[in-house]
Simulated scan of single mutants.
Amino acid sequence: MTVIKIDDEIELRIIQMDERFKLFETVDKNRIHLRKWLPWVDHSTSPDSYVTVIQAWQENIDRGTGLELGVFYKGELAGMTGYNVIAVGQGRAQVGYWISKDAEGKGIVRRAVKGLIDYGFKDLDLNRIEIICGDKNYRSRAIPESFGFVRESTMAEYEFLYDHYHDCIMYRMLRKDWVSQTK
């Protein structure tokens, strides 16, 4: 089982089937907070709605096409991060993340994503990591910008959020740039 120990407070690991209850509870408690930027929140209607999701995450891990991980802060599920997409044989992947409202402002996402990026370049042998954020989601955009990701493009009406399309920004980091800035 993949476990990425970030520091004394944060660990990233695969969500197990019996943790679907906690995952649902976390999403349900943060529904309004998360719904603003995440198009899947309304599909989370019960713990059992995560059965097929967790199975799909495991299949993606087995195929090497994704790596969705729970963010555990002081042993409690606080959110998710991971590689939503890994382009097998292409050396590139896209990072996604979300955090519960009560876990915001503690640097959890920044530390988790940094650990995930290090893991991607070192252990998954990635060459390019992308992060796509809503153009008006300034808190989310602060993550790639804080790491020096390059703003590569603005994608018009890229994602549908319940009743409207919104623009997204694609950021990228190349391994050579990450290595040179973290020396």
Rank of each mutant, 00 (worst) to 15 (best):
N127E: 05
I14P: 09
Y158R: 15
R31I: 04
D8F: 06
R128T: 06
S100F: 10
M80Q: 14
K74P: 11
A112F: 05
R92H: 03
R139F: 00
Q90E: 03
W178V: 09
N127S: 07
K122M: 14
R151Q: 10
L38F: 08
W37F: 10
E145V: 02
L77C: 04
L174Q: 10
M80P: 02
S100D: 15
M80K: 13
S153M: 06
M173L: 14
L23V: 13
Q181W: 04
F160A: 07
F160K: 12
Y73R: 15
Q181D: 01
P39W: 06
R20K: 15
W40T: 06
E157C: 01
F147D: 09
E76F: 05
I6W: 11
K74V: 12
G120S: 08
R31G: 00
R172S: 11
R31Y: 11
G120M: 08
E76Y: 00
R92I: 04
E104L: 01
R175Y: 00
W40L: 06
D177N: 10
V95H: 04
I6Q: 07
K106E: 12
E104I: 05
E68G: 09
N137F: 10
E157F: 08
S153P: 01
V53A: 02
H43M: 12
I15P: 08
L126A: 07
R13F: 00
G134T: 03
K183D: 00
W40I: 13
M155K: 07
E25S: 06
Q55M: 05
Y158H: 14
R151L: 01
D125N: 14
K114F: 02
I117A: 14
V71A: 13
V109P: 03
V3K: 15
D102T: 12
A112E: 05
D42C: 07
Q94C: 05
Q181N: 03
D125F: 01
L23I: 12
Y162T: 02
S153L: 04
G66L: 06
I14L: 09
R139T: 15
I15N: 05
G107R: 07
I54R: 03
D118A: 12
N137T: 03
L77D: 03
T2E: 01
Y138G: 07
R13I: 04
Q55Y: 02
Y73E: 14
M155S: 00
N60G: 12
V109F: 09
F121D: 01
K29Y: 11
M155F: 02
G70S: 10
Y165R: 11
G115E: 06
T2V: 11
